[in-house]
Simulated assay, not measured.
Amino acid sequence: METHRLLTLLGVVLLIATIAIFYLDEEKPQDEFSFAYVTGISMIVVFLASLAIVNKGKFKEKSKN
């Protein structure tokens, strides 16, 4: 599998984990840290890396012109 597809698949898994952690958390304290933040930020980073890999060739073409 290509790298960007693996990253996209990992991003989807992190999205599902984020939603599951957020909604299945029994106690929802307003002042404490939620682990859904960690998976959510990780998901965004993985999706951005996948997007950068997919568009890597387009960035190179624009810099040559």
Rank of each mutant, 00 (worst) to 15 (best):
F33P: 00
L9F: 07
V46R: 02
F47R: 02
E2T: 15
S50R: 05
V12D: 04
K58D: 11
S42G: 11
P29R: 00
K60D: 10
T39Q: 04
V45S: 05
I16S: 05
V54T: 12
Q30Y: 07
E61L: 08
P29H: 07
V38R: 03
K58M: 06
L48H: 01
Q30T: 13
E26W: 12
V13Q: 11
T18R: 03
I41K: 05
K64W: 06
M1F: 10
N65K: 15
M43I: 05
L6G: 09
S63K: 14
F33Q: 01
Q30P: 08
V45Q: 00
L14I: 07
L48E: 02
D31R: 12
D25Q: 13
P29I: 11
I21F: 02
K58I: 06
K58N: 09
K64D: 13
Y23F: 11
K62I: 15
F33N: 00
K64S: 13
A49L: 13
Y37C: 04
E26P: 14
A52M: 10
A36N: 06
F47E: 01
A20T: 07
D25L: 02
I21D: 07
E61K: 12
V38C: 07
S63T: 15
A52K: 09
F35L: 15
M1I: 05
K64F: 06
R5A: 15
A36L: 02
L6Q: 09
A17P: 06
F59Y: 04
I41A: 14
K56P: 00
T18V: 00
V45M: 08
N55Q: 07
S50K: 03
V38Y: 08
L10Y: 05
S34Y: 12
I19D: 01
E32F: 09
A17R: 10
I53M: 02
K64G: 03
R5Q: 15
E26Y: 13
V46Q: 01
S63P: 02
S34N: 13
L10M: 11
I53S: 02
K28R: 15
L9S: 13
A17C: 12
T3R: 10
L10K: 07
L51W: 09
T8A: 13
I16R: 01
G40Q: 05
V12I: 14
A17W: 04
K62R: 10
I16P: 02
D25V: 03
I41H: 08
I19Y: 07
A36H: 12
T3M: 15
L10F: 05
V13F: 14
D25Y: 04
Y37N: 10
S34W: 15
L9M: 10
I53L: 12
F22K: 10
I44W: 11
G40N: 05
